[in-house]
């Protein structure tokens, strides 16, 4: 049995589902952050897999097509940035509410 694109996509679906489950169930902001990381990784797998297995070829200048890899690269970079900002926000949040429970922060309510 060959490993095909579907394998990777299904793995990514599993990870995504797990991420959503985490985001839905955790009241802790850090938990939600972890869920987001899972979702991002799911996306990353898809990008790389599609790039490797479907998006084959070279550009006219001879460079291989590897946009998916580059996209994932950016995802990682942005995830790092996101984590840093999120952490700073959580610290402030914690400073304000003395807790990290997102449900306590209902001041967004209209």
């Amino acid at each position: 049995m060959m490993i095909g694109l579907a394998h990777f996509v299904i793995l990514s679906a599993i990870l995504a589902a797990a991420g959503i489950a985490v985001m839905l169930t955790r009241r802790n902001a850090l938990g939600i952050l972890i869920g987001v990381e899972l979702l991002l990784n799911a996306g990353g797998i898809n990008f790389v897999a599609f790039n490797r297995l479907a998006h084959v070829g070279t550009a006219p200048d001879g460079a291989p097509l590897m946009d998916g890899v580059v996209f994932t690269f950016f995802i990682i970079v942005l995830a790092a940035a996101e984590a840093a900002v999120a952490l700073a926000i959580f610290l402030n949040y914690y400073n304000t509410f003395r807790s990290i429970d997102v449900d306590r922060a209902s001041e967004l309510k209209g």
Binding site: I20, M23, L24, R26, R27, I32, V102, D103, A105, S106, E107, L108, K109, G110
Partner: peptide, 18 residues
């Protein structure tokens, strides 16, 4: 009217989105 649906809870929003 609609604000009643908005509880201000982040996770509810996440739920809605998904």
């Amino acid at each position: 009217v609609l604000r009643t649906t908005q509880a201000g809870r982040v996770r509810i929003y996440v739920l809605g989105i998904f």
